[in-house]
Every structure is written in C-alpha cells, then in structure tokens.
Computed example of a mutant assay.
Amino acid sequence: MLSGLVLAVWQGARLLDRRAANQLIAMMAAGRDVDVDAKAAAEVQFARLHFLTFRERFDEAQPIATRLAAGDDSRLASAALYDLANARLRAALDHLAVNDIDPAIPLVRLAKEGYRRALGRDPAFWDAKYNLDITMRLVRDFPQIEVSGEELPPEATKRLWTDLPGLPRGLP
C-alpha cells in the first residue's frame, strides 16, 4: 500500500514537471522570450536554442548547443547542432543575397563545423550530410601553407581565387 502511494506521488510530480516544461516550450513557440535554467529538461533547452537561433542570437545559443551535444541523448544532441548550423547557414545566405561576403564566410565555416559535429553524434543523419555537402560548395577548405620564419613565399602573396567562389545552383 505504501509503495503504491509513493509511486503515485512520484508520478504526479513527474506529470507536473512535464506540464511546466510543456508550458515553457509553448511560450517560446509563441514568440515569448523565456529564460531557461541550464538544469532544465533537455527538450526545454532545445526549444530555447531554437528560439535563439531563429532570431540569430548565436552567442546565446552556442552554450546551449554545446551543453546538449555533451548530453546522453544522441538524437537531441545532433538535432541541436544541426539546428544551430542551419541558422548560421541561413544568416550567411542572407548576407550573400546582398553581396555582403565578409560576414558570410565565418558563418559558413561555423555551419560546416556544426554539421560535422552533428554527423559525429549521428553518422546516419542524412539531412546533415546533405547540408554539409551544400555548405562545402560555398566555402572550400584549402590546405594552409606552412611558413617558417618571417618571409612569405612569393606564391603565398598571390590570391588566385576567393574563399567564396559563389552560390551553388542546381546539380554539379
């Protein structure tokens, strides 16, 4: 009898916690800026991450993505990294649409890193593979020239191509 009562109290407390978490998620989905504790449920933290990335508040979203990526839930970790990478890629594409290349390059590189980390957590994540492929076409990774000493070799001073060759259109 006592064990049944303890179980009922425990289930009731769990139900109240989930209800509060669902209310926080619903408020963020409605566009309200709700502060979320770092010890909140992972789903609530993911909702906060999505809220911040949708508004391009990447500096606030990065610690949440890092915390979720370090968690035990591989599916949620890869989804958080993917969501942040997508937001950075969208911001980069917005810059490119108005030919503002300088701020787009680091955003594309950070998006690539996010997709790679998402694939590290879930190698079968097809959407991350696809987006990484598209992002790789935006800014290519070229090997860096190692220089010893102070003088640069003459071929290092020439820039034969830009880091951002252009927007991919269609299939290769």
Rank of each mutant, 00 (worst) to 15 (best):
E43N: 04
E60D: 15
Y82P: 01
Q45W: 05
A79P: 06
D102A: 12
I64Q: 10
P165F: 02
F46S: 00
Q45V: 01
R90Y: 04
R121Q: 02
R57D: 03
V139L: 09
E56Y: 07
A124G: 11
E155H: 14
G170S: 11
L138T: 03
L110Y: 03
Y115N: 08
V6D: 14
D33V: 03
L96P: 13
D102P: 10
R48P: 01
H50A: 02
A104D: 12
N131V: 05
R18Y: 07
A41T: 01
T53Q: 04
N22F: 02
Q144Y: 13
E60N: 07
M136N: 08
P165T: 05
F142R: 15
Q11H: 10
D141A: 09
L164M: 15
L164G: 08
L164N: 09
R169D: 14
V6L: 15
A128F: 05
A61S: 06
F58H: 15
R140D: 12
L107G: 04
T53F: 01
I101W: 04
E113K: 07
A85H: 05
L7R: 15
D33P: 14
M28T: 06
E155P: 13
K39P: 09
K129C: 06
W10Y: 15
M28I: 03
A104W: 07
D94P: 10
G114M: 03
G31H: 06
Y115E: 09
A77Y: 04
A13F: 15
E151C: 10
D37E: 11
L171Y: 08
A124Q: 09
S74I: 00
E113T: 11
K158H: 11
L171W: 08
A85E: 04
L171D: 11
R57S: 05
L68W: 00
A40R: 01
V147K: 13
R121S: 00
A79H: 05
D133S: 14
A47G: 02
R109W: 02
D133H: 09
D122I: 01
S3W: 11
L164A: 06
A70W: 01
D35L: 07
T135F: 02
F58W: 10
R140L: 11
K129T: 05
H50N: 06
G166F: 12
A156N: 12
L167K: 08
F46C: 00
D72G: 01
F125L: 05
W126I: 07
F46L: 00
E113R: 09
A42F: 00
V36R: 06
Y130L: 11
W10E: 10
Y130I: 09
A20N: 00
V147E: 14
A128D: 13
G120A: 09
Y82C: 01
R140Y: 08
L93W: 08
L152M: 15
V36Q: 10
N22A: 08
G4Q: 09
K129S: 11
R121L: 01
A77L: 06
